[in-house]
């Protein structure tokens, strides 16, 4: 299987506080990996390190075999290969729905406006937001914003999609519409790395579950292994508390 991302001995500290201690794991092409774990375990930091929004303190991140932490690596080109979906949506407030999805394509990928709009429309249809292209972010509900944010990331046609707790900031009744879109994407063979607290969702869509606690990966395995037969005491503990 083709490895898209390979994380080797990744470390991250904020001052003296060590958030990521020694992270090793891979993401293969077409795989859906869900990262679960208690708050403060470093899940989001890991995702942000992969995207270089946080600078790792040590270790390697290999993208298709090349270490992107080497000095001469073009981080801007690398970031276009990763689609990022944030907890707080972070839609560009000064752009409407359509241009949120085209501005990156036009300015960074240098696509023509026409091509960018075609691509954007394709993905806005996937997330069911094609009727809202004229709306500004402040005119949308949280679930709608997050679906546009997913379309914006997809419009860059990345190799891997990173989701940083995409439903944590949503009202409970809006969570489903976002999860539905993500399930649909998982079925298309898109490579996805998802930090989530939605256990049922993780169980259903993940090919692999990574359980993190206190800055390390405690356990990693198929959903059946993790949810039905966890090996570590901490994993059992966490699942008992979250699943009830």
């Amino acid at each position: 299987m083709e490895r898209v991302l390979e994380i080797v001995h990744l470390k991250k500290s904020f001052g003296t506080h060590e958030v990521l201690k020694d992270i090793n794991f891979n993401v293969n092409k077409g795989e859906v990996v869900c990262i679960i774990g208690p708050s403060g375990s470093g899940k989001s930091t890991l995702l942000r390190c992969i995207n270089l929004l946080e600078k790792p303190s040590g270790g390697k991140i290999l993208y298709k075999g090349k270490n992107i932490l080497e000095e001469n690596h073009d981080i801007y080109a690398y970031r276009t290969k990763l689609g990022m979906v944030f907890q707080q949506f972070n839609l560009f407030n000064n752009h409407n729905v359509l241009s949120n999805c085209t501005v990156g394509q036009i300015k960074v990928l240098k696509r023509s406006k026409k091509e960018a709009e075609e691509v954007a429309m394709k993905y806005l249809r996937v997330v069911g937001m094609e009727q809202y292209i004229n709306a500004k972010p402040k005119q949308l509900s949280g679930g709608q914003k997050q679906r546009v944010a997913i379309a914006r990331a997809l419009s860059m046609e990345p190799d891997v999609m990173l989701f940083d707790e995409p439903t944590s900031a949503l009202d409970p009744e809006l969570v489903d519409e976002v999860l539905r879109v993500m399930k649909k994407l998982a079925q298309t063979g898109l490579t996805m790395l998802i930090v989530t607290h939605e256990m049922e969702f993780a169980k259903e869509v993940a090919d692999r579950i990574v359980f993190m606690d206190k800055g390390i990966i405690e356990e990693e395995g198929s959903p059946e292994e993790i949810f039905n037969n966890p090996k570590k005491e901490r994993t059992r503990d966490f699942l008992r508390r979250t699943l009830k």
Binding site: N51, L53, Y76, L82, F86, F92, V108, A149
Partner: peptide, 8 residues
């Protein structure tokens, strides 16, 4: 962050 994430 969102702008950096699309490669700007």
């Amino acid at each position: 962050e969102a702008a950096y994430a699309v490669g700007m």
